[in-house]
Amino acid sequence: MLSRDKWLGALYGLLVVIILWYAVSWVLKIPIIPSPFAVFIHIIEIFESKMEIHLLYSLGRILGGIAISIIIGVPLGYLMGYFDKIDKVLSPLVYFTYPIPKIALLPIIMLLFGLGETSKLMMIVLIIIFQIIITSRDAVKGIPQEIFRSLQSLGASKLQTFTEVIIPASLPEVLTATRLALGTAVSILFFTETFGTEFGMGYFIMDSWMRVNYLDMYAGIVILSFMGFCIFSAIDISEKYICSWR
């Protein structure tokens, strides 16, 4: 029921955006703002021949970035949340680096790792991993002591405590944090794709702009946004599924 409302909400949002976009393009009638329908038709025409490859690159980078962030960030956050000693050592580091705008580190990363895929992934990971570490840590710390009692009385091992309590209890919050970090990740992705590559939606959009091909440019923006929306929804759905006990 609730998720149907959500989908209706998304549909409503889409409609409003299209109507506003159309209204602006109709009033101004300039090539910088084409009508949304022209753009949609254009997407159908060029998607397979010109855009698909760029979309796949972008998708690979963002999913890779998210995967690396989760694989490193979640265990680290769990360790910090569970073992006070580890937390005491790492928390100051995390807190200190958290507010630093990571995008400012881009030049350094590029100098160190070159212009290739490594730096692009690094940037995405750098930006979202802190959010994931902190959320995982706080989620573990927030588990009430009572929840552990049944397992303690059964003499469960540390590993069993992790798999039976800590992971399932914190998973919902970790997924939410990932979902929220996604918006930033897509922006960074766009930014890193504007140089050092000839593939990716960021490149496609900037290249169309340079070529003064506004229809291509808009098509790129729409597809990039749509990609973000799809990943967002995918996490949202898995959240619903995994956390159906809530």
């Binding site: 009572e146 929840i147 009692r149 049944s150 309590v165 006990w245 809530r246």
Partner: peptide, 12 residues
């Protein structure tokens, strides 16, 4: 052990 608040795990 049967705990006063039952001690069931909500995600299972």
């Amino acid at each position: 052990l049967i705990l006063q608040n039952y001690g069931l795990l909500p995600w299972k």
